[in-house]
Amino acid sequence: MRIGEFGEFELIRRIGTFLPGPPGDVVVGIGDDVAVLNVSGPEYLLATCDAQVENIHFIRAATTPYQLGRKIVAINVSDIAACGGRPKWALVSLALTPDTGVDFVDGLYAGMQEEIHAAGASIVGGNLSGIRGEIVIDLSLLGTVSPECLILRNGARSGDLVLVTGTLGESRAGLELILRPELEVEQEAGDRVRARHLTPGARLREGRILAATGSIHAMADVSDGVLGDLGHICRASEVQAEIWPESLPISPECLRVAEVARCDAVQWALSGGEDYELLFTADPRRVPEIRGRLEAETGTSCHVIGRITGKGEAVLVRSREGMSSDYGRGPAGWDHFRAG
């Protein structure tokens, strides 16, 4: 069997079977977006890494090196944010062709430095390598979190409501405009959704505030799509969830692009991915307090989009008419080896 048939997440599980059990100082190991390590101090150490591969994650003609630099930092910071942590130190590895312009590297580091500084962290090292094909930018990020503020995927409980910050689907709408430049939409709408795709922002402050409430049971960032990332929470927590499509926060700009592209904005919101919003579960009795505090302290809204219904691992999309679809069998969001 080839990995294209196997899929990304089955491959991760298979890799895990070849590794010994984690030592006692590993709080969370392989299988999550962030490793959590007990380094015998007052805080846990967080470790994550992510790569941007040319013609898989980005098209060089459609983005600037500066935008790419910002994005590679933001997507890693987003993983730290979803744990309630603070980013600290980054290592960057570049695999470049010999004909890559020095100005590309200059722009890339200008973007990375701006984004890492805004997150309160620093780039402290890395590696350079030549490559014969598409370029690769890989970033590893270390951070910290107090044990009492750590939020993982595996704490969702039956009866929890499912919430998400901000809006969904705009990154996918931006990608649609990049891939189909002949589409004509109002400049303001086009600029907004393209920016959400090319230079996403991590909900770092929001993640720390949510963690500080002590009321969040499970959390992940929306990188693979709401269906995919809620599926990760459900599998880790051994629970089943339902999403209410009419409650998904979709902006007028996303709706407009979908209309012009003759696509379904709800589907973009469910499985488009790369929105980097925070997806979390909480006791319904605490939701008004959580929403009020988040908006008061950050200006960011959050929306109830579903609930945890009981034991299981499936994610259902349930409309007001009672119709449902089972998305629990296999990935419903981005999968590197099944995509396309």
Score class of each variant (00 low, 15 high):
Ala47Asp: 00
Thr48Asp: 00
Asp50Phe: 05
Ala51Val: 05
Ala51Ser: 10
Val53His: 03
Val53Gln: 03
Val53Ile: 14
Glu54Gly: 08
Ile56Leu: 14
Ile56Lys: 11
Ile56Ser: 10
His57Gly: 14
His57Cys: 08
His57Asp: 14
His57Phe: 08
His57Leu: 01
Phe58His: 05
Ile59Ala: 09
Ile59Cys: 04
Arg60Ala: 08
Arg60Phe: 03
Ala61Pro: 04
Ala62Gly: 12
Thr63Phe: 05
Thr63Ala: 13
Thr64His: 08
Thr64Asn: 09
Thr64Arg: 11
Pro65Thr: 04
Tyr66Gln: 12
Tyr66Asp: 10
Gln67Glu: 15
Gln67Phe: 02
Gln67Lys: 02
Gln67Asp: 08
Gln67Trp: 01
Leu68Val: 01
Gly69Phe: 04
Gly69Arg: 06
Arg70Lys: 13
Arg70Phe: 01
Ile72Arg: 02
Ile72Leu: 09
Val73Gly: 00
Val73Ser: 00
Ala74Gly: 00
Ala74Thr: 00
Ile75Leu: 12
Val77Met: 05
Ser78Cys: 02
Ala81Leu: 04
Ala81Pro: 01
Cys83His: 07
Cys83Arg: 15
Cys83Ala: 10
Cys83Thr: 15
Cys83Gln: 07
Gly84Leu: 10
Gly85Arg: 01
Gly85Asp: 00
Arg86Phe: 04
Lys88Tyr: 04
Trp89Glu: 15
Trp89Asp: 14
Trp89Cys: 11
Ala90Pro: 06
Ala90Gln: 03
Ala90Met: 05
Val92Phe: 10
Leu94Asp: 06
Ala95Tyr: 09
Leu96His: 07
Pro98Tyr: 06
Pro98Thr: 09
Pro98Gly: 11
Asp99His: 13
Asp99Trp: 11
Thr100Val: 14
Thr100Phe: 01
Thr100Ser: 11
Gly101Val: 10
Gly101Glu: 12
Val102Leu: 13
Val102Met: 11
Val102Ile: 11
Val102Gln: 11
Asp103Phe: 06
Phe104Ala: 12
Val105Arg: 12
Asp106Gly: 13
Gly107Ala: 10
Tyr109Gly: 07
Tyr109Asp: 05
Tyr109Glu: 08
Ala110Leu: 15
Ala110Lys: 14
Gln113Glu: 15
Gln113Gly: 13
Glu114Ser: 14
Glu114Val: 13
Glu115Met: 13
Glu115Pro: 04
Glu115Ala: 15
Ile116Gly: 09
Ile116Phe: 07
Ile116Ala: 09
Ile116Val: 14
Ala119Trp: 07
Ala121Asn: 03
Ala121Gln: 01
Ile123Trp: 05
Ile123Asp: 06
Ile123Cys: 07
Val124Arg: 13
Val124Phe: 06
Val124Pro: 10
Gly125Cys: 06
Ser129Trp: 05
Gly130Thr: 11
Gly130Ala: 13
Ile131Met: 10
Ile131His: 10
Arg132Cys: 01
Arg132Phe: 05
Gly133Asp: 08
Gly133Tyr: 03
Gly133Arg: 08
Glu134Cys: 07
Ile135Phe: 01
Ile135Arg: 13
Val136Cys: 11
Ile137Asn: 05
Asp138Pro: 01
Asp138Asn: 15
